[in-house]
Amino acid sequence: MQEPARDELPGVMVVDADVLVRHVLAEYLRTCGYRVIEAASSDEAQNFLEHGEVDVDVVLVDAQAPGRVGGFGFARWVREKRPGIDVVLAGAPEHAAEQAADLCEEGPHLARPYDPQSVVDRIKRLRAARTRVDEL
């Protein structure tokens, strides 16, 4: 499979209250050619998706993200209201894996600590799977 051109890479929203984690991951994704939007809470992320002029294909959300609905609730909202956006739930505790399974593609969650390349690998698998489904 041929790698997509840098301008064809998906837009990614990183939702994490930890500013260091969020910025490091966002910068890594940008150096890989992704368009990245950062949000510190589920409220901020939901506002971007409801009212902003944003082009988001994948949301990476921390399971413990602050906000009215939190990380799990935001992942659920994205799955229900924006089905064209893939969801990766990061940092879900092991006991929450069953709850996360219906919210995320490619497995229930991305365990912490994770390295930025594992996020890129997950995004590539998600987008490849979506492309195959769209071609059917």
Score class of each variant (00 low, 15 high):
75 A>S: 08
105 E>G: 14
43 D>P: 08
50 E>V: 02
71 G>V: 04
43 D>V: 06
18 D>I: 00
73 G>I: 05
90 A>I: 14
124 K>Q: 12
95 H>V: 04
131 T>V: 11
93 P>M: 10
23 H>G: 07
129 A>R: 10
17 A>P: 10
134 D>I: 07
96 A>R: 03
113 P>L: 04
109 H>T: 15
51 H>V: 07
25 L>W: 00
12 V>E: 00
47 N>D: 15
126 L>I: 03
78 V>K: 13
110 L>M: 11
40 A>R: 11
59 V>C: 04
91 G>W: 07
75 A>L: 09
76 R>E: 15
53 E>V: 13
9 L>Y: 02
95 H>F: 12
27 E>R: 11
4 P>H: 02
29 L>Q: 03
51 H>M: 06
81 K>Q: 14
7 D>N: 07
1 M>T: 10
131 T>W: 06
51 H>A: 09
119 V>P: 02
12 V>L: 01
37 I>C: 08
120 V>W: 06
63 A>L: 05
77 W>I: 13
61 V>L: 12
28 Y>N: 00
130 R>I: 03
135 E>C: 08
94 E>Q: 08
41 S>F: 06
48 F>Q: 14
117 Q>G: 04
33 G>V: 07
80 E>S: 08
6 R>A: 07
67 G>K: 06
67 G>S: 08
10 P>D: 01
70 G>V: 05
67 G>P: 06
125 R>D: 02
4 P>S: 01
32 C>M: 12
88 V>L: 03
69 V>A: 11
46 Q>I: 06
23 H>S: 14
59 V>P: 02
127 R>A: 05
6 R>S: 08
79 R>Q: 10
132 R>A: 03
52 G>L: 05
22 R>C: 01
38 E>I: 00
3 E>M: 15
59 V>H: 01
8 E>M: 11
46 Q>A: 13
84 G>W: 09
130 R>S: 03
132 R>S: 01
79 R>V: 14
39 A>M: 00
90 A>C: 10
130 R>K: 05
